[in-house]
């Protein structure tokens, strides 16, 4: 463990907590893409299959349980508890256009042609594009609530911090995982446009409103 990865995990944790607080306090899921949350649930389920087979640390296990638990709770809030506030008209990204290519790529490009490894690779590739339905929804509604912007900033920062973690681990431990790094770079690049809006607007107390 290193400071970059710890900050990355804390940023990821913060994002999930911000999202849950937004939903619970406002009792509304307006502006939140249920499809992205379903993709994140798929990512965590696929990646944490080894939750019961390989023990790494108490921290690792607790975080995995927390991530899986909260993402399914988020889906429950969106599609059941606060269903009336879910904006399905604007959450119209065709996720099959993500899952099929990502699934195919996981079969073709992986570290080892073994079931668990391919599923892990699928989760890495899927995570890099899982935020697209959410960003697409914001571009369609033309705006994002400030709390949603904080959620996205924390979520985008987590993988950017992981890039720093991989640089550190390469020089400190000789650890290098090309698949995770390439997917992490793609994932972070997808947030760049949003990061720009966040820093130029939200940091100055304005709301994010895209030219619709």
């Amino acid at each position: 463990m290193n400071i970059f990865r710890l900050c990355g995990d804390m940023s990821h944790l913060a994002a999930i907590i911000i999202l849950l607080l937004k939903m619970w306090k406002t009792r509304s899921v307006a502006g939140i893409s249920g499809k992205s949350q379903i993709l994140f649930a798929t990512v965590f389920t696929a990646r944490y299959l080894d939750l019961f087979t390989s023990f790494i640390s108490i921290y690792n296990t607790c975080m995995k349980v927390f991530f899986i638990g909260t993402v399914y709770f988020t889906i429950y809030l969106i599609y059941m508890k606060f269903k009336a506030t879910y904006d399905s008209n604007h959450d119209s990204f065709r996720v099959e256009f993500l899952i099929v290519p990502v699934g195919g790529l996981a079969f073709l490009v992986n570290h080892e042609f073994a079931p668990l490894e391919i599923i892990w690779t699928f989760s890495i590739y899927l995570e890099s594009v899982a935020i697209l339905p959410q960003l697409f929804m914001i571009s369609k509604t033309g705006e994002a609530e400030t709390i949603t912007s904080h959620y996205l900033f924390a979520l985008g920062s987590y993988r950017a911090l992981y890039l720093c973690n991989w640089i550190y681990r390469y020089y400190a431990e000789g650890f290098f995982d090309l698949i995770a790094v390439v997917a992490g770079v793609v994932q972070t690049i997808l947030y760049c446009d949003f990061f720009y809006l966040y820093i130029t607007k939200v940091m100055k107390g304005k709301k994010i409103s895209l030219p619709a």
């Binding site: 690792n60 975080m63 570290h111 080892e112 490894e117 992981y162 973690n165 650890f175 995982d177 995770a180």
Partner: peptide, 10 residues
């Protein structure tokens, strides 16, 4: 055979 990194990250 190629080293398969043990996935110790979240």
């Amino acid at each position: 055979d190629e080293f398969v990194p043990k996935h110790d990250e979240l």
